[in-house]
């Protein structure tokens, strides 16, 4: 993910950042499986969300995550 994509303000109609809202029962591995087909790629999602995730195992329902 480019630095521009990480900095793009939310609500900007030209922003192409991909977002996922965490649902009940989801983990980063499950989210990685949904978007990439491969749960082992979850570190990619964690890296893209270090500004809001301290631990890849700790995500909350309703949390908005960037999906590169």
């Amino acid at each position: 993910m480019s630095d521009e994509q990480k900095k793009a303000p939310e609500g900007d109609p030209t922003d192409a950042t991909q977002w996922h809202v965490v649902q009940k029962g989801e983990t980063l591995s499950k989210i990685a499986a949904k978007y990439y087909g491969d749960p082992s790629l979850y570190p990619t999602i964690f890296e893209a969300n270090k500004d809001r995730l301290k631990d890849p195992n700790l995500i909350r329902i309703g949390q908005k995550l960037r999906i590169p």
């Binding site: 993910m1 990439y36 491969d38 790629l41």
Partner: peptide, 13 residues
């Protein structure tokens, strides 16, 4: 970004 990641994926979504 997405194409690069999917290219590394063991299985596609």
């Amino acid at each position: 970004s997405r194409v690069d990641i999917l290219s590394k994926s063991k299985k596609l979504p």
